[in-house]
Design a protein around this nucleic acid. Structure first.
Lengths: 107, 107
DNA sequence: ATAATTTATCGTAATATTGCGATTAAACAA
DNA sequence: TTGTTTAATCGCAATATTACGATAAATTAT
């Protein structure tokens, strides 16, 4: 017990849930917002930007990277992170699709 | 340690994260999809629909209700659940807003 | 070479989530 | 009343998440 029963659901449902879960933390929302707004690959000032410890931010970045929402490349001695446009649009389409399934209001 | 530092983030970021987190489980995705598709308030056949135990589904319904995405009314001896159109659109707008913040692709 | 900077990873503690059997409570049927 | 149906809640076990100090690894600066 205690482990999510992904076997009961479709791949699309699991994928949607995975994306939503990754966006389900304010630090990760803050990270993607920051990357969106500066609209560039940055050698992260994220530790300054958010108030969390470096190890914690690294962990959040890893999760965002794992799901493909951001990508990081080595830039000398630091890292350069930015949003992966392709995946970002894919996530947007999946979530938009979910919201658009609900058409008429019944009550 | 181990508790999300909501104090570090804006209300909007926390709200966005809360919505995403609730949608971050395949059972809850399946529930809102089902409610969307039948487009009606139902005396839930959800236990039949999904393969989870009744207690588990009840718990997921409670979380969706807590965040306001669905609403339930007593219908005789059973419950009638449906999507809350207002909140649903609010969630859609918030998430769309997040995705639309990212405009230009930098790499 | 040595020191400083940057970021990933490890280890650990605190807390949250998931799932389900069992029980409870309320409405309905006989 | 007695039994049935429906759904919420309790209690618990298993697992996942969050946070952070400490450490490691790699690059750059002196």
């Amino acid at each position: 017990m205690g482990v999510t029963r992904t076997d009961l659901f479709t791949e699309q449902q699991n994928e949607l849930a995975k994306i939503a879960r990754i966006l389900g933390h304010p630090a990760r929302i803050a990270i993607v917002q920051h990357l969106s707004r500066i609209n560039a690959c940055i050698n992260s000032d994220l530790v300054q930007e958010l108030g969390l410890a470096q190890a914690t931010i690294s962990q959040h970045l890893k999760e965002l990277k794992n799901v493909g929402i951001i990508q990081g490349t080595v830039e000398g001695s630091s890292m350069s992170y930015c949003i992966n446009a392709t995946k970002w649009n894919e996530c947007k389409d999946l979530l938009t699709g979910l919201f658009d399934e609900y058409k008429n209001e019944c009550c």
